[in-house]
Amino acid sequence: MYDPSIIAASIINGLMTGAIYSLVALGLTLIYGVLHIINFAHGSLLMLCMYGVWFLYAQAGIDPYLALPLVAAGAFCLGYGLQRSVIGKTSHGRDEIILLVTLGVSIIIENIALFAFTANERVVQVPYDIDGIDLGITFLVVPQIAAFVASLAITAALWLFIARTYTGKAIRAVAKERQGARLVGVNVDHIFAVSFGIGTACLGAAACLLAPTFPISPQIGYIFVLIAFTVVVLGGMGSFVGALIGGFIIGVTESLGGLFFGESLGKLGISLIFILILLFRPTGLFGQRM
């Protein structure tokens, strides 16, 4: 039997990773909640953002954490422009077309990345990556703590934005009642693009938090998008709270699975949860609300 302190340590580590999963899933769930589509380009946009972080680090020597506002703002503009000028224009208002367009966009982005950056892994090394706090049962390094704190802060800020501001209210209005939103004078195309932009900005922030721990390659998006998808299904499509709690559950599952069954076999736990949720509670833990 394992020592409880080892299990506790594993849970803490899982929570730290889970916070980033939440952030990636938050972007996915927001876009789903408003546009009613799964954004297949989510993984490739995350990858693109990570290259952005690497570029700023390698070319301008900007610390990935300091780059966060810049990358998030850039990602917002990218997402806004993509929705407004490509996805929205080609979809003719039909959801199934949007789905295929995002898939097409992801293929294009990946191949451009492969061409421009090659398949070689790029590394962002911060000088303080082994500094940290000793909790007694486990040692948390700066990238873990930063990822945890920043993810929670961003989630909270986003929640406040959606709940309190007029733009946030317009996003919620468009999510459930497009016609009603048009009639109070909401520019629905603009709100679609803002939502897509915010979803992409979440990826920009996540990219900064991931870059110090994960080597960057054109395929990196897949790992996270698969997890994010599981988180969104687990938490409930379109649910903010669901994305947050779901991220933590998946993070802890992965960590404990790794502890008990080893690194690669432990990942089975995530897929297992995915299948169980689809079988027994297809609406996810927190249903359909936003």
Binding site: K169, A170, R172, A173, A175, K176, E177, Q179, G180, V184
Partner: peptide, 18 residues
């Protein structure tokens, strides 16, 4: 065409969106 996922107050506030 009210916004079912929003409070009555938020629905009213949306009336003053523009």
């Amino acid at each position: 065409r009210v916004f079912p996922n929003m409070s009555v107050r938020d629905n009213l506030e949306m009336g003053a969106y523009r």
